[in-house]
Design a protein around this nucleic acid. Structure first.
Length: 570
RNA sequence: GGCGCGGUAGCUCAGCUGGUUAGAGCGCUCGACUCAUAAUCGAGAGGUCGGGAGUUCAAGUCUCCCCCACGCCA
């Protein structure tokens, strides 16, 4: 039995994520976790909310709540939605947890001990009214280059010129609108990533089997311009993890917190401590410490392409730099973006479908299937309602759902609601068994390689094989002259329903559960031996004709939803 | 402007280290079947692989140039 540690990039706390975010990390990670569990392997699947940083503070202020309270509420909202999508996290943690505070401070201390932290004094804009330093993009003013009055502190959106906040004429805070700004010197810690460039480059170079998307992004950051740059790991904020050197104070860094990108990935580890502290597990170190049993763990991370630099370089720099026995990632599966109907999903414009809205109009399985079967693996991909409707109706309702329906209803009408007796499998049944066995092997190969779209295609082909078989042997015909032969055929078909439920569980867990329930079984063991699996139900085994497994999406619904989620275009 | 990823049948996409008539699903046409959610199964018609040049016995698949879309960065 292998051991798989699986993490999904942790979603930011300020709001509900859209389907593009879902398919980029949490959903494929869940697919892989469910598959590995299905194969009988030991899995620890972790995710969390990413709660620190200025956007969280501003979102809380907008909601009129203390930031801690806001984060707690939003964490619960996101947890419920994740649950609604059947994301099977062993624990859904929080980067603001006590465990992460302590661990982040520990890493910072280790890095300092190794000489990998340097202090930098820089000038930033301080807003008296807001009582805080403002990130560049939260300062606006008149562009000195083109006169545009709403140029941001980092760049003018009108002429494109790159700016420093201090360049702006009449700068003001976009948080409060205040013009009472002042340049102040402030000291920050930088992680000396440049020191580790060689080590990181060697490590990335050794990962020949990683997706091109993953390695090409890493290479770019390693080699672009002057190469990998040192990065600030602290901010002048109230909300976050206090800057400490392990358990000790950090002279000169009082009142500062770690920058969100530094503490967020450490939450992957802290999350496993939360998992233990929540009573769900007993030993987190055997997943994370190679000196304490984690050397046989396979660690896989899932993320959208925007997160690749942090996972290929920054977080590994932290791990390498700490020079302790931490488990390093073995495989990084990254995804491109999902576009929405000819453009991008847009949170600010309300364009596209968000996770809560998706669940309001259709059950999770419908979304899971479409999203995974069309996952943006090799390039950005496109969501259109027409495509969604046709895929869902064809694959789920017609090919799989109708198979369950035709088999159970035929049996009920001719033999009753129990597996019929008589005869034994003949050549046609053996041929189907061989065909499916080969396809299951192909399915496993694709799933092992995290080839999401190919896995979906193979699974669909397995469903289709059942319909092909029925069409060929035609039990409705054989029943007329030779009921025993029809009994053999329908017995095999009933066994196929259970087999399909097991194989499909990673993609469509609810439908899988419904199928197993209809077949009056909870045996979802993986069909390592397809022939044996297709002999499981013997004559007399009772079942119940289930309700429709998947309904169809009507043209009217499709048009209505297309209109509803179009958002405001500008 | 630089970099990255793409540009393959009407649509969404596969095509690894170059090698027989370029593939899948959907859609479309025709046929079969009637157990089933007007479902299923089969057959067929549709691409010369963004454009151009080159390397090679052989290129969608390697090289160079150009065009287009998207993304990132400065």
């Amino acid at each position: 039995m292998a051991r798989h540690l699986i993490t999904s990039a942790i979603p930011y706390i300020n709001g509900i994520k859209h389907l593009g975010n879902l398919v980029g990390s949490q959903l494929p990670a869940d697919l892989f976790a469910r598959y590995q569990r299905g194969r009988g392997h030991e899995v620890l699947f972790l995710c969390a909310t990413d709660e620190h940083g200025t956007p969280a503070e501003l979102a809380a202020a907008k909601a009129g709540k203390p930031v801690a309270e806001y984060c707690e509420e939003m964490h619960d909202v996101q947890a419920k939605i994740a649950d609604g999508f059947n994301l099977s996290f062993d624990h859904f943690g929080r980067s603001s947890s006590a465990q992460n505070h302590k661990l982040t401070q520990h890493f910072a201390g280790r890095l300092a001990d190794q000489g990998l932290i340097r202090e930098v004094t820089e000038t930033q804009m301080y807003s008296h009214e807001d009582g805080r330093f403002l990130p560049d993009r939260y300062i606006e003013g008149t562009c000195p280059n083109c006169g545009f009055e709403e140029a941001r502190g980092d760049q003018c959106d009108n002429c494109g010129k790159l700016l420093d906040p201090t360049d702006l004429i009449d700068p003001y805070s976009t948080v409060s609108g205040s013009k009472d700004l002042e340049e102040r010197e402030t000291k920050h810690l930088y992680l000396r990533q440049s020191e580790m460039r060689g080590k990181l480059a060697d490590w990335i170079d050794s990962k020949k089997d990683w997706p091109i998307l993953t390695t090409s992004i890493a290479q770019k950051w390693l080699n672009d311009g002057d190469g990998l740059q040192d990065r600030g790991i602290t901010r002048d904020l109230d909300w976050g993890i206090a800057v400490k050197k392990g358990e000790n104070d950090w002279p000169g860094m009082e009142g500062k917190v770690f920058y969100v990108w530094f503490d967020a990935p450490i939450e992957y580890i802290a999350c496993s401590q939360e998992w233990v502290d929540a009573g769900k597990g007993t030993d987190w170190e055997r997943w994370w410490r190679t000196d304490k049993g984690a050397d046989d763990v396979t660690y896989t991370q899932f993320m959208g392409k925007d997160n690749v630099p942090f996972h290929t370089l920054s977080f590994p720099a932290t791990i390498f730099g700490a020079d302790e026995d931490w488990k390093l990632v073995d495989y990084i599966k990254s995804f491109n973006y999902l576009n929405y109907d000819g453009g991008q999903f847009s949170t600010s414009r309300g364009r596209g479908v968000f996770m809560d809205q998706a669940l309001e109009i259709l059950p999770a399985d419908y979304w899971r299937w479409w999203l995974l079967a069309n996952a943006p693996e090799s390039s950005d991909s496109e969501f259109t309602w027409e495509q969604f409707q046709s895929i869902v109706n064809k694959d789920l309702a017609d090919v799989l759902g109708n198979f369950v329906s035709r088999v159970t209803k035929f049996c009920r009408s001719k033999f009753g609601e129990a597996v019929p007796e008589g005869g034994d499998y003949g050549p046609a049944e053996l041929a189907l068994t061989d065909d499916i066995a080969a396809r299951v092997k192909a399915y496993e190969k694709h799933m092992d390689a995290m080839e999401v779209r190919k896995s979906a295609a193979e699974l669909r082909a397995i469903w289709t094989a059942g319909n092909e078989y029925l069409q060929t042997v035609a039990p409705w015909s054989t029943f007329k002259e030779d009921p025993d032969t029809a009994a053999i055929q329908i017995r095999l078909a009933l066994n196929l329903i259970r087999l399909y439920a097991v194989l499909s569980k990673p993609f469509i867990p609810d439908a899988s559960a419904q199928m197993l329930a209809a077949m009056h079984t909870d045996d979802d063991s993986w069909p390592d031996d397809v022939s044996a699996a297709l002999h499981m139900f013997q004559s007399g085994h009772e079942f119940t004709v289930p309700d429709i497994t998947f309904r169809k999406i009507t043209d009217a619904e499709r048009d209505e939803w297309q209109e509803k989620f179009a958002g405001k275009r500008t």
